[in-house]
């Protein structure tokens, strides 16, 4: 159980309703201080609504949340003034968010951190999308918040710009708690220590990424290559071992079948399945355990 003081964000039974639509339904999860928390879910799942509520942009309909510290927020569309220079823009944002702060030193520090020093005097409208996204992140950082919320920071960027933003997030995690929503599961695997998966306004799963992936090993995936396999054998296999699913595909090049087997229970029956497939009628060629990746987790959880 987490102590409240260890939590950067604690959300309890948060709901948000719009006329005729429930956007969030009793959402409960927490974000540990100093963690990079991935917020996943398909389009329209309620990610942006949750992030907007935590950042104070919209009120919740019911429920409660506590945020320990200031929040910097980068919405899905970065809030940029195209006719301002990067430096002027960041100074303006600092002025309206923290009117008593020493503007210039903060702005210079954030520009250094986000790699914007070389373009500080350029108009934002003339920058590439990758740099504009950096400016968006810089505006979330400029008033020195403890928590940074990034709503799909890599959306619409080319692979190079995406890698740059990823590096930037890695750099920022030393000093901040970061919550970010994304569709790029690769980003989550590389950056996040914790994840929350949301679908149709409900939390599907939330917790440390390693723990969630480990818990899924109860649904072990096996991969096998066999010489012969028919539909009757597939049905027999599913029935005999009470499998969740078994799929076969014929490899025309190698003239063998590729089986993908998903187990319902524990990994105990792995050996029996291997023995069954090794019989003369089937002829086992290869047999190995597949590691479930985040993409599969995502698909499994959503459906």
């Amino acid at each position: 159980m987490n102590k409240t003081s260890d939590l950067a964000v604690d959300i309890r039974n948060l709901s948000k309703t719009y006329p005729g639509r429930i956007a969030l339904n009793n959402v409960t999860f927490s974000v540990r201080k100093g963690s990079v928390h991935g917020f996943l879910g398909p389009n329209g799942a309620g990610k942006s609504t949750t992030l907007k509520i935590i950042s104070g942009l919209i009120p919740q309909s019911s429920g409660d949340y506590t945020v320990s510290g200031k929040v910097g927020f980068l919405p899905e569309h970065p809030p940029l003034y195209p006719n301002m220079t990067v430096k002027d823009y960041l100074k303006f944002v600092l002025d309206i968010y923290a009117p008593d702060k020493n503007a210039i030193s903060n702005v210079l520090e954030v520009m250094n951190k986000t790699g914007l020093s070389t373009v500080s005097e350029r108009l934002i409208g003339n920058l590439s999308k990758g740099y504009q996204q950096r400016v968006g992140i810089a505006q979330a950082l400029v008033h020195s918040p403890e928590i940074i919320i990034l709503d799909e920071p890599t959306v619409g960027l080319d692979p190079v710009a995406m890698a740059d933003i990823r590096e930037l997030i890695k750099k920022l995690k030393k000093d901040h708690t970061i919550i970010f929503s994304t569709h790029q599961l690769h980003d989550v695997e590389l950056l996040c220590s914790d994840i929350t998966l949301i679908n149709h306004g409900d939390i599907v799963v939330s917790g440390p990424l390693e723990q969630i992936l480990e818990s899924l090993k109860t649904k072990l995936a096996l991969s096998a290559k066999v010489e012969h396999f028919s539909e009757e054998e597939r049905v027999k296999l599913v029935k005999k071992f009470n499998l969740e699913s078994a799929e076969s595909q014929f490899d025309h090049e190698k003239k063998n079948y590729h089986l993908k087997i998903i187990l319902k229970g524990s990994a105990q029956i792995k050996k029996e399945i291997a023995q069954y497939l090794a019989t003369d009628g089937i002829g086992l060629l290869e047999f190995f355990e597949e590691k479930l990746d985040l993409e599969e987790l995502f698909v499994q959880m959503i459906h």
């Binding site: 942009l57 927020f73 809030p79 003034y81 309206i96 968010y97």
Partner: peptide, 11 residues
């Protein structure tokens, strides 16, 4: 430009 939310979240 989505900057209204930037102003509304500010001081």
């Amino acid at each position: 430009q989505s900057t209204l939310d930037l102003l509304l979240r500010s001081e």
